[in-house]
Design a protein around this nucleic acid. Structure first.
Length: 882
DNA sequence: CGTCTGCATGGTA
DNA sequence: ATACCATGCAGAC
């Protein structure tokens, strides 16, 4: 970029083919300088470039004070003139003389900023005019634009609210700055920023270097146009300046504040290397673009939690067009209210005022926003008077949020895509961050990208002229399942109400824990269960509460024998173990006693994680990776260990105490007060009466009900599953997204769709489980009220239940068997939840069988079952169902 | 009676 | 002490 791709002189009228050395011309957007041949370069240096080459071009005006001809809107001359407040232009010389008075430096077009787009395009860009106030806005917007674009400082300095007047701003900008700016140009110093920068509207530097310290003029940067006309500027910058002094100000006390706000975002353009953000603050965090504003000023104004976090990569993904620039504006973690059905998304005041179009009426205006898929949404951007302030909200977001499958705790991001100026809305699933990964605040999760979308012409107004709009999006992180990023980047929730926090973080976390824990439940060590039979189903009863074992991976060895792979806690090597080996909560090589040879951590690994991963079905690799990560990450390890505690707490919670001194009852580990599941309502092992098929006791009724539910579900699942498959085929292009969706852990049950999302998968697992069980189940063919619901599938045709249902079940089973085969084994890990679900899910009522154990192992030996689920998968189910 | 709308309240930073 | 904002809630529909 820096240099012209070709070896041609960059003077459009010259194009002399030349080789090095080139003479330096105007600054390009990318920070480099135009390469000019000697002749053109000389003309440029002498300030007669336009006279020499553009004499016949349009755009010539006269300096108001001295009458000198000025080629306005030309990148080659942009730095030599100033746009006056009251109209007209002035050469720099005159501007300097008049200094604070009239002259406004050209807003920036620092050459660097200059966009190749035709002026016209940009200029028209947004008519914010939609708003009633638009008219006036236009005017002063320009100013703001300039300010912002050029420099934040300016804004801060003074222009604030009253900015209305273009004049004000411009004045400041005046000559001095210009000159300063020019000087800088020469030196190319980006460093200097300060005020000058701000004033230097015109200076390209600002833009480029823009970021100098905190204040990088983000928005401005990109807006370059050939024409210097205000319009143009406004188009670009305008938005940026959210400031809205006038418009907004009505309420807010400091409209000025608004102005300031705008600044924060720096345009992160792809094009420009200068990522304000990066430049400034992040020396280290190069990749994450936190919206953190470079500008300190901004920071102070925009709470960290709203700083957009987005990586360069993400940005790039968002904008497919290499020429487009995405400027992250801000992000917000959805509150319960935001994600609720009301469809109102509360916008941080400062963000709204800084990046959205100014609105003077509560009704606000329609705002077009594109989502990462490029779909355009129109929200009503408005505000409510609140105290002496305003509360900004986006109305009508429900469809969008549902489409993105967002829920409380997830984060939506707003970015602006330049030069289109479109607002882009992205998102980041809270779940994407590994549960235990709290420490990492990186954006792994982020994704959403937004495609460019135009601001709607009509609504364009809504978007601010200059403001950046970028919606950025979050990609979903594939693996992340965990619901909450521990700390979430900014603890967006942090400030939120406890309620929210609990719901989203803790709750989710707890939920996850449960899901994961479910699959890891193990009988207490060294405890021999007493087996009770309830209606034909064996239940293992332990005196001690279960413990959480370590996740393992089930596979088949070379000989076709079922085995499970477990990772040593100490050396992280993977060891093969008999499929029926129950891992303790902390497994180490030395525990591999199952094999004759006793191992130690020093023993060479039998397989590497990578190899192991390869052995897994694709569908399980994600889980595996997660597991792997979990183990390797010290934090996670700790967390894992804490899982035990957590799980136990959860188990113990709710009043029931499954203390070590466990009560001898049939209550399952997850029993909760009031639990009426088939297990809990049963008398202690073996003491209950045997049920007949005609029995109408609670247990039997429950089982029957569950069976019915199961059958219905199966039908539904089947159809959904098929639909899902079809859908996937169509959407393979969005792997990430899909992946996320697939992530079972992510599911939150919120009201949203996310839950729906998982359903298919879960169900699939369920089916699998059912299938297996069925195949092995001894009870085929009949509805045996004594069996666990999960096993109901086993029923074979001819059972008491409708033969049709049975048939359906069988069909589904067969199908599933074929499809899932071995993959089923992998159940422990993440899939754990899935597994669990299956069983549990079968019945709508969780509890039933849920809790108890996996009878399966006793009955059939379907390895998977026994191995993976010592406990009851069902319990998991329970959790999910609920 | 459910939903929508706009404002009020109160917790948190 | 103040501003922000998540949620509540009453009135309207």
């Amino acid at each position: 970029m820096a240099t012209t791709p070709t070896k041609l002189c960059m003077n459009y009228h010259c194009k002399e083919v030349k080789s090095e050395p080139w003479r330096r011309g105007w600054r390009l957007r990318n920070g480099d300088f135009a390469n000019l041949c000697d002749r053109c370069g000389s003309a440029f240096e002498e300030g007669r470039f336009c006279d020499a080459f553009h004499s016949y071009d349009s755009g010539w005006r006269q300096c108001v004070p001295c009458g000198k001809r000025l080629h306005c809107g030309c990148i080659a001359s942009v730095h030599t003139m100033v746009v006056l407040d009251y109209g007209g232009v002035s050469c720099i010389t005159c501007a300097r003389k008049t200094i604070n008075i009239l002259p406004t430096p050209n807003p920036v077009w620092p050459p660097s900023l200059f966009l190749s787009l035709p002026t016209s395009d940009r200029v028209n860009v947004k008519n914010w005019s939609q708003t009633p106030s638009s008219g006036s806005i236009g005017t002063w917007r320009q100013a703001p634009i300039l300010l912002e674009s050029s420099s934040q400082s300016e804004l801060h300095h003074g222009m604030p609210s009253e900015v209305d007047i273009s004049g004000g701003i411009e004045r400041r900008i005046a000559g001095e700055q210009l000159s300063a700016f020019l000087e800088k140009k020469k030196t190319e110093d980006m460093t200097e920023t300060k005020m000058n920068g701000s004033l230097k509207l015109g200076t390209s530097e600002m833009l480029e270097s823009g970021t100098k310290r905190g204040e990088k003029p983000r928005s401005c940067i990109y807006a370059s146009k050939k024409s210097s006309s205000k319009d143009d500027l406004s188009a670009h910058f305008g938005p940026a300046v959210p400031s809205l002094p006038n418009e907004t100000n009505g309420q807010s006390k400091g409209s000025g504040a608004h102005l300031k706000l705008p600044t924060p975002s720096t345009p992160l353009t792809k094009q420009f290397n200068c990522n304000p953000i990066n430049d400034v603050e992040t020396s280290g965090e190069t990749q994450v673009r936190n919206g953190r504003p470079r500008a300190e000023g901004r920071r102070t104004h925009l709470l960290p939690r709203y700083w957009p976090r987005i990586t360069d990569e993400e940005l790039q993904q968002i904008s497919g067009d290499p020429n487009s620039v995405i400027t992250p504006l801000f992000e917000k973690t959805l509150s319960a209210s935001d994600a609720g059905r009301i469809g109102r998304l509360v916008l941080p005041k400062k963000c709204a005022e800084a990046y959205f179009p100014p609105i003077s009426q509560p009704e606000g205006l329609p705002l077009k926003v594109q989502d990462f898929k490029g779909k355009e949404w129109v929200f009503q951007f408005r505000f409510w008077p609140n105290n002496n302030s305003r509360m900004y909200v986006l109305e009508g977001v429900t469809p969008c949020i549902q489409t993105m499958q967002l829920q409380a705790g997830d984060t939506v991001t707003f970015s602006r895509l330049e030069p289109e100026g479109k607002l882009v809305m992205g998102f980041r699933k809270a779940s994407s961050v590994p549960l235990f990964d709290q420490g990492n605040q990186t954006l792994q999760t982020a994704n959403g990208v937004s495609a460019p979308g135009d601001v709607n012409p009509a609504d364009a107004a809504s978007m601010r002229p200059n403001v950046d709009k970028s919606g950025y999006i979050a990609k979903e992180i594939a693996e992340s399942k965990s619901p909450f990023p521990g700390k979430r980047k900014n603890s967006t929730l942090g400030s939120r109400s406890k309620r929210l926090r609990i719901e989203n973080e803790d709750l989710v976390e707890l939920k996850l824990t449960w899901e994961e824990a479910q699959g890891l439940l193990r009988p207490p060590p060294n405890h021999v269960p007493s087996v009770m039979v309830i209606d034909g189903v064996e239940f293992e009863e332990y005196e001690e509460p279960p413990i959480l074992g370590k996740p393992t991976i089930f596979a088949t060895d070379d000989e076709g024998k079922q085995i499970q792979w477990a990772q040593c806690e100490d050396c992280f090597k993977w060891r093969s173990l008999p499929v029926d080996f129950l891992l303790p909560s902390r497994f180490t090589c030395s525990d591999k006693s199952s094999n004759a040879e006793r191992l130690s951590c020093s023993t060479a690994p039998e397989i590497t994680a990578e190899q192991l991963e390869e052995l897994l079905p694709v569908s399980n690799q994600v889980s595996f990776r997660k597991m792997k990560a979990t183990r390797l990450d010290p934090e996670t390890v700790e967390a894992l260990e804490g899982l035990d505690t957590l799980a136990n707490l959860a188990i113990l919670g709710e009043g029931e105490t499954l203390s070590s001194s466990a009560q001898a009852t049939t209550k399952h580990p997850r029993h909760r007060p009031g639990c009426s599941c088939i297990v809990c309502i049963q008398p202690p092992s073996g003491k209950g009466p045997k049920h007949k098929q005609t029995c109408t006791c609670n247990v039997c009724l429950t089982v029957k009900r569950r069976f019915r539910t199961l059958m219905l579900r199966r039908e539904r699942k089947q159809s959904e599953k098929e639909a899902e498959i079809v859908r996937k085929k169509h959407h393979q292009q969005l792997p990430e997204r899909l992946e996320q969706e697939d992530d079972p852990l992510i599911s939150n049950d919120g009201d949203n769709s996310s839950s729906d999302h998982r359903k298919p998968l879960i169900e699939g697992f369920e089916e699998e489980m059912n299938t297996r069980k069925c195949s092995t189940s001894p009870f085929k063919g009949q509805i045996d009220l004594n069996i666990q619901p999960e096993r109901e599938e086993e029923l074979s045709p001819g059972s008491d239940s409708s033969s049709m249902l049975v048939k359906l079940l069988q069909d589904a089973t067969e199908r599933n068997l074929k499809q899932q085969k071995l993959s089923n084994f992998i159940g422990n890990i993440d899939t754990t939840s899935d597994q669990a679900e299956p069983s549990g899910r079968g019945t709508g009522e969780d509890k039933l069988g849920s809790d108890i154990k996996p009878v399966g192992n006793h009955q059939d030996s379907s390895v998977d079952i026994s191995a993976a689920l010592l406990l009851n998968a069902s319990s998991t189910t329970t959790a999910t169902d609920r």
